[in-house]
Computed example of a mutant assay.
Amino acid sequence: MNTTYCPVRKPRPWGQIAQAGVVVVALPLIIWPFVSSDVFDLATVGRYLFSATIVQAVWSTLSLATLSTALAIVLGTVIALARISENAVLRAAATGYIFVFRGTPMLVQLLIWFYAVPRVIGQISLSVPFTDTVLIPQQPASAFFTPFIAGLFALTLAESAYMAEVVRSGIQGVDQGQRDAARALGLRRGKIIRQIVLVQAFRIVMPAVGNQYIMMIKNTSLAYAIGYSEILLSVSRVYYTNFKYLELLLVAAFWYLVLTAAITVLQHFIEKRWPAR
Rank of each mutant, 00 (worst) to 15 (best):
S169I: 00
V134M: 10
Q172N: 12
T131A: 06
S127Y: 04
S125I: 04
Q172I: 01
F148L: 13
S169A: 15
A184E: 02
I171E: 02
L198F: 08
A181W: 07
S142D: 06
A150C: 00
I149L: 12
F148K: 12
S127C: 00
L152R: 06
L157N: 03
G177K: 07
M206F: 02
V199T: 12
R168K: 15
D180V: 10
T133C: 02
F148N: 08
V167C: 05
E159Q: 15
P118H: 09
T156C: 03
T131C: 03
P140Q: 14
D180G: 10
R179A: 13
I124F: 15
I192T: 14
G173Y: 08
L185V: 10
L187G: 04
D175R: 14
L198V: 07
A158P: 02
F153Y: 07
V174W: 11
A154Y: 04
Q200N: 09
R179H: 07
Y162R: 10
R183T: 15
P118I: 09
A182C: 12
A150I: 02
P118Y: 08
Q176M: 13
V166C: 06
P137A: 12
S125D: 12
D175A: 15
L135C: 03
Y162G: 06
Q138S: 14
R119V: 14
R194Q: 12
Q200S: 06
V128L: 14
P137S: 12
A201G: 08
T133W: 14
F153L: 04
L135F: 02
R189I: 09
Q172C: 04
R183G: 14
D132E: 13
I171F: 07
V128D: 01
G173Q: 09
V166W: 00
A181R: 13
G122D: 00
S169K: 09
R194N: 10
S142E: 04
R203H: 04
G173F: 04
S125M: 03
A184T: 13
P118T: 10
R179M: 10
V197A: 01
R179T: 15
A182I: 06
Y162D: 06
V174I: 15
D175L: 05
K191F: 11
V205T: 14
P147K: 10
A150P: 05
F145A: 02
R119T: 13
A141R: 07
Q176Y: 13
T146I: 04
S142F: 00
I204Q: 07
S160E: 00
S125Q: 13
G170E: 00
L152T: 01
D180A: 14
G177N: 06
P129C: 04
L155W: 01
E165S: 04
A164S: 14
V120D: 01
P207H: 12
V167W: 05
A141P: 03
V205K: 12
S127N: 13
G177L: 01
G173I: 02
G151F: 00
D132G: 11
A161P: 00
L152K: 05
L135P: 00
Q176L: 13
V197P: 01
A164N: 01
G186A: 11
Q139R: 15
V174P: 09
L198Q: 11
M163P: 01
A150D: 02
P137D: 04
S142Q: 09
Q178D: 02
Q138I: 13
R119E: 15
R183H: 11
D132Q: 11
I136Y: 03
G173H: 10
E159T: 15
P129N: 05
L198H: 11
